Amino acid sequence: MAAGGDHGSPDSYRSPLASRYASPEMCFVFSDRYKFRTWRQLWLWLAEAEQTLGLPITDEQIQEMKSNLENIDFKMAAEEEKRLRHDVMAHVHTFGHCCPKAAGIIHLGATSCYVGDNTDLIILRNALDLLLPKLARVISRLADFAKERASLPTLGFTHFQPAQLTTVGKRCCLWIQDLCMDLQNLKRVRDDLRFRGVKGTTGTQASFLQLFEGDDHKVEQLDKMVTEKAGFKRAFIITGQTYTRKVDIEVLSVLASLGASVHKICTDIRLLANLKEMEEPFEKQQIGSSAMPYKRNPMRSERCCSLARHLMTLVMDPLQTASVQWFERTLDDSANRRICLAEAFLTADTILNTLQNISEGLVVYPKVIERRIRQELPFMATENIIMAMVKAGGSRQDCHEKIRVLSQQAASVVKQEGGDNDLIERIQVDAYFSPIHSQLDHLLDPSSFTGRASQQVQRFLEEEVYPLLKPYESVMKVKAELCL
């Protein structure tokens, strides 16, 4: 049975990233139509530049190519590739079939990587351009969430054990800070992308030097003109047959890092959902379990974690691919890159769409948070109580021993009897502590235990987050809708 299948058929496997999760716009960027249309555009740009620099290419040939950029006979191309065992030459023939007058000058002087690699770089750039505003929107939604809850005390956790208090907004800023680093890295790697350009079979530009009869300047002009037509500021000066596969490492490393950030955020949300302090959106008709109707599973956060793990592992592909590119190139890269580049971007696209949807509907339960604080705060307040007693004339050592005994009794009630923490009640009825009984409410005010959390939130948002989001103001209103 021949390899390949009808990918629109229910009898043929289709990647869930495309069929179930990723956005239509990201799927289109990695589609065959987008790819092969870009090949034709690159052939047109090459012909236009070659004509401008004096090669015998007519206006009629150029116009014929322009008129057929979208006229792609995919069936013919597939048949040609089956016959020739070469995808680029299959599309040269297919393009030439609908451009008979231009057929002889299509791909003039070029090698397969002229269309293959340059198209990949265009796709990487455009895919990054799709991700950047999506990530900015996630940051914006979380920034709104953090600002609104900047002063809401909550129990902090280290080692997932109760620690000092923080605020809900401050905790959210930990998430935002990681995503801001990801946004900066995505922008950097996007701006650092260079075009492969017009380089020939081993990167020496020998074929173009021959076409222009040894004119170095025209060869350099050709490279520059096509690079500018493709919208790049610069091209690699040095290439082998391909652009260095280190570029793929750079791009997928940034995406993998984004995956790590999203995994951490969504894990926190899942843990908070278990504590009943916070939940992701839950639709009115949504079913959490087929057997347990009360369940409210954090399905979206779980999906993000599941896909983020996949995204983090994909960076190993370009690392290994770059390491086995012998001399000017081997074909070890080809099949692998067809999979890992598309999957990385479709996965990143999915987790950003999902995280935006989550961040637009996060639900906080202040009463649950308050109750958990009441359970733990008495123990945390013991040092403040000791200091207040010393100020009232008591002995630190005597007070410490009193607190120690009462704390152990209260802990026994919590752990052995399943009761509430009654340390404060014990202190309130103990005559030894009568000098500070009137101060206990103040000493137990949760806001006095959150330090500068709310001020940190305000400063972080104003100095770091809002300036970073400013270039994306025009796209901030787009909502994230999930079908599944």
Rank of each mutant, 00 (worst) to 15 (best):
A322W: 14
T201Y: 00
V478F: 12
E81T: 01
L482T: 15
G5R: 07
C340L: 10
V414A: 04
I139D: 03
F212P: 04
R329F: 06
V363Y: 07
S261A: 10
E80W: 07
A235K: 08
K264C: 06
R452L: 10
V465L: 07
A18Q: 11
E81F: 00
S15G: 15
S257L: 07
F36K: 12
K391P: 04
P162G: 05
A102I: 09
K101I: 13
V92R: 01
F30G: 01
T167I: 04
T167N: 03
F433R: 03
E328T: 00
L142K: 08
R296N: 09
K187G: 13
P471G: 15
H442P: 08
M389C: 09
L255Q: 08
A22L: 10
N384I: 14
Q356D: 07
K295L: 01
D332V: 01
L124V: 15
G96M: 08
L468S: 15
V189N: 12
D87R: 00
K35P: 02
L55F: 03
Y34N: 06
S290C: 04
T267E: 04
G288F: 04
T52Q: 14
V168R: 02
H7E: 12
L132Q: 14
A3E: 12
E283Y: 06
L341I: 14
V457C: 09
L131G: 06
I386K: 03
F212H: 05
A344H: 05
L443I: 15
S395R: 07
K233N: 10
K477M: 13
R37E: 11
Q325T: 09
M225F: 10
E277R: 02
T227I: 05
S151C: 11
M299A: 14
Q286G: 02
Q356P: 03
E370K: 08
R171G: 00
S261P: 04
H310Q: 07
T450P: 04
S334K: 04
V88E: 01
V198D: 01
I386F: 03
S474D: 14
Q41H: 15
E417S: 10
A348Q: 03
R83T: 12
T154M: 12
Q458D: 15
C266F: 08
K199W: 00
V324G: 08
T354N: 10
V198Q: 03
F460S: 03
S438N: 10
Q61G: 12
E473I: 14
R190Q: 10
L314W: 06
T119E: 08
G394V: 08
Q241R: 02
K246G: 03
K479T: 15
E220N: 14
L331N: 06
D398C: 12
Q161S: 02
E462P: 06
I369R: 04
A47H: 05
S67T: 13
I287L: 08
E80L: 07
G116H: 04
T227W: 06
S253M: 15
H217Q: 08
R245S: 02
F327W: 04
Q164R: 01
V457H: 02
H159K: 02
T350V: 15
E70I: 13
T94R: 10
I287Q: 05
I123W: 03
V475A: 15
S261Q: 03
G203H: 01
G361T: 13
N126R: 10
S23W: 08
A235P: 15
G259L: 02
V324Y: 08
D6T: 13
V368D: 04
L53I: 15
A410F: 04
E81R: 00
A235I: 09
L355Q: 08
D117C: 11
A136G: 14
V29W: 06
F30S: 01
C173L: 05
L55W: 07
P24Q: 11
T347V: 09
M76N: 11
C98K: 13
P366H: 10
L443G: 04
V429P: 03
R404I: 04
R33F: 08
F145E: 11
